[in-house]
Amino acid sequence: MDETGKELVLALYDYQEKSPREVTMKKGDILTLLNSTNKDWWKVEVNDRQGFVPAAYVKKL
């Protein structure tokens, strides 16, 4: 969790967005987890953008 109590995830792999609903991340990025109710796609925030990334590409910290 960060200082505001939000849950964080670590990008395990690079991911290039394939639609406007997704976000690009690089391996090693720390992202804010917004929603993990879907087992396949998690909603995150990175670089002031919100979108989805494959759940298998990130790990909760």
Rank of each mutant, 00 (worst) to 15 (best):
A55L: 02
L33K: 01
V53F: 00
G28D: 06
E22W: 03
G51H: 02
L34K: 06
D48K: 10
I30N: 02
P54C: 04
V46H: 15
G28I: 00
V46C: 10
V9L: 12
K26P: 01
P54R: 03
L12C: 07
L8Q: 10
V53T: 02
Y57C: 10
T24E: 04
M1L: 13
W41V: 03
K26T: 07
E3L: 14
A55T: 06
K6G: 11
N38E: 10
E7R: 11
L12T: 04
Q50V: 15
K6T: 11
V53C: 03
T4V: 14
Y13Q: 13
K18C: 10
D2R: 04
T37V: 10
Y13K: 12
V9D: 00
L31Y: 08
D29H: 05
D40P: 02
K39D: 11
Q16N: 15
E3R: 05
V58F: 05
E17N: 07
K6Q: 11
L33Q: 00
N35H: 07
E7K: 09
A56C: 12
G5Q: 13
E22G: 12
M25I: 15
E45N: 06
L8S: 07
G5S: 13
E7Q: 14
L12A: 03
S19F: 06
L12R: 04
K60A: 07
E7V: 15
K60C: 09
G51C: 03
T4G: 14
S19T: 12
T24D: 04
E3M: 12
D48F: 10
P54H: 02
V23R: 02
S19M: 07
V9Q: 01
N38S: 10
L61D: 03
I30Y: 06
D14E: 05
T32N: 08
E17V: 05
W41C: 06
L61G: 04
D14C: 05
Y15P: 01
A55F: 02
T37A: 12
L31G: 11
G5H: 14
E17C: 12
G28M: 03
L12Q: 04
L12D: 02
A55C: 07
N38K: 07
W42E: 01
S36I: 06
E17F: 05
K43M: 14
A56S: 14
Q50I: 14
W41H: 03
K43T: 08
Y15E: 01
V44Y: 00
L61E: 04
T37D: 14
E22D: 05
W41A: 02
Q50C: 09
Y13N: 08
N35E: 13
R21C: 14
T37H: 12
V53R: 00
